[in-house]
């Protein structure tokens, strides 16, 4: 699996993502500029990452303008032909705005930017992003956002559940999904989802900020290992 990381004006987690994929995971990774339409040879079986940041200054709504960047048409075609897409934070917001994932990320309920470690409960291992994870072990991953309150209507929520599209819930350290563990007011503590065909993933937390021991937290490593089809040793994360 090769990777591409898209850089929008205002992206600020692109270098972290390039570092983790290239240096930590030793994967082949290329940078993609948002004004380009060429995906540098990435195709089926490869993965394009939309990193975190503040594309276009979050003007109008987070992700609303970036979704019309020239590269997004190519990315949509790439996803429709089975390529993997991963949107982290602002990348998740862009994927929702583009309609590649259902729902929307609204202003946090407490009206504040929140930057802290949270715990995630893996809701399903039936996805390339979560297949190597242990659902019994909550992951400690940082969030950093002001618009992370996931919302979809009742029908949308029922569909997410019926199709096993919820990947992560905000939880306690013990994996309990309770209102106290919900940092931003997200619907039913939803922190990450995938599309129906299970090749487009979006999540607000930042696994790329927690993927190597020097940073004191490796809980995010498992998601990248998962994408690459690597099995994790028990208690490795």
């Amino acid at each position: 699996m090769k990777f591409g990381v898209v850089v929008f004006p205002g992206s600020n987690c692109d270098d972290d993502m390039l570092h983790v994929l290239g240096k930590v995971m030793q994967a082949e990774v290329v940078e993609l500029w948002h004004k380009d339409t060429d995906l540098k040879g990435l195709g089926k079986g490869d993965c394009i990452v939309l990193p975190g940041g503040f594309s276009y200054g979050d003007y109008l709504r987070a992700g609303a303008i970036a979704r019309f960047s020239p590269i997004m048409k190519s990315i949509e075609a790439f996803a429709n032909s089975g390529g993997y897409l991963l949107g982290i934070c602002n990348g998740f917001q862009i994927l929702c705005e583009a309609g590649l994932l259902p729902g929307v990320l609204m202003r946090n309920d407490k009206q504040r930017f929140i930057c802290k470690n949270v715990y995630l409960k893996t809701a399903t291992t039936n996805s390339a992003l979560t297949r190597s994870l242990d659902p019994k072990q909550a992951l400690k991953i940082p969030i950093a956002h002001a618009e992370g309150r996931y919302f979809t209507d009742a029908e949308g929520l029922a569909e997410l559940k019926a199709n096993d599209q919820i990947l992560f819930y905000y939880s306690t350290e013990n994996g309990d999904i309770v209102p106290e563990a919900n940092p931003n007011g997200s619907l039913e503590n939803i922190a990450g989802i995938c599309n129906k065909t299970r090749n487009v993933f979006g999540m607000m937390p930042h696994p790329e900020r927690a993927a190597e021991s020097i940073l004191g937290n490796q809980d995010g490593f498992g998601l990248f290992a998962s994408l690459l089809g690597q099995k994790l040793a028990k208690n490795a994360v």
Partner: peptide, 8 residues
Amino acid sequence: KLLANLIM
């Protein structure tokens, strides 16, 4: 398409 997100 742009100015409003009709979901919210």
